[in-house]
Design a protein around this nucleic acid. Sequence first.
DNA 1: ATTAATAGTTACTTCCATGTGACTAAGTGA
DNA 2: TCACTTAGTCACATGGAAGTAACTATTAAT
Lengths: 146, 146
Amino acid sequence: MEVTINETQANTIQEKVKTFFDPNNHPAGFCPVKDVVDRIGDKWSLLAILNLGYGERLRFNQLKTQIEGISQRMLTVTLRSLERDGLVNRYVYAEVPPRVEYELTPMGEKLLVKVWELADWAIEYKAQILESRAAYDKKAAKKTRS
Amino acid sequence: MEVTINETQANTIQEKVKTFFDPNNHPAGFCPVKDVVDRIGDKWSLLAILNLGYGERLRFNQLKTQIEGISQRMLTVTLRSLERDGLVNRYVYAEVPPRVEYELTPMGEKLLVKVWELADWAIEYKAQILESRAAYDKKAAKKTRS
DNA sequence: ATTAATAGTTACTTCCATGTGACTAAGTGA
DNA sequence: TCACTTAGTCACATGGAAGTAACTATTAAT
């Protein structure tokens, strides 16, 4: 089910991108990739999704503990927006003190799988990125000095 | 080469995440997924990468035209950071007026392939997200009214 | 002498995502 | 009566990413 582009037989990423950006295929500004990245590009959403990725329902405070550094407010904000988009389910139990549990929806889990594949790239190229960065900074420093 | 987790035979995403987050496997805070998303999560990087994904070298002003809404400054900033991380190459021609061309590096192209797969998810679930969002807002509106 | 072209840089401003700390409801147990 | 618990909300403060507009070098063409 990897049929992003089925308008033509596009086999290389170049062909795919070219086909994709063709105004005949989509309205201008249509960019699902950007949509996803915007959705998970904030500070906490991805971490919430990852922590719910264990497959167990987690209570609010469990998440707060597991997601290091997150504030109460930001956890609420993050979970609300994930819930709104249908990526997590929220279960409220009528108890005192309150109990609220969160879990990934199937849609959220599918996203996690996709996002997870990015990790392959990150791991494979992490060293190379750091190298490139160091080399670049070294050059920049030289220029500034002279 | 999809061997993110080879410590165990982890077949479900739950197992993968569990294995991944095990402090025995990685130092705390190690999260390559977050790294990538941070890298492309800014406003323009992804759009620059996508536009360079055609496989053709593009001049500064070509990019500026193609990336709708980007300012001169932000294009420079974006390209510089991509160059620094080794995702794009920059070719300067000693001409007047200046000519500078940009292209994806192989590493950048590999990233594009991965990121592209997110589009599959986005396209598949776009309608469902919008539905979920509308339903959520409708409920929220009711609560406010009462 | 002036304009035009390209690929920037620089100084300044603005705004929104995020952070902080106090506050709340509702019941339980001491 | 008071403290304690959980899962929040609310008002306000802040930093940094992004935006804006003016300025630059260099040469060719008019």
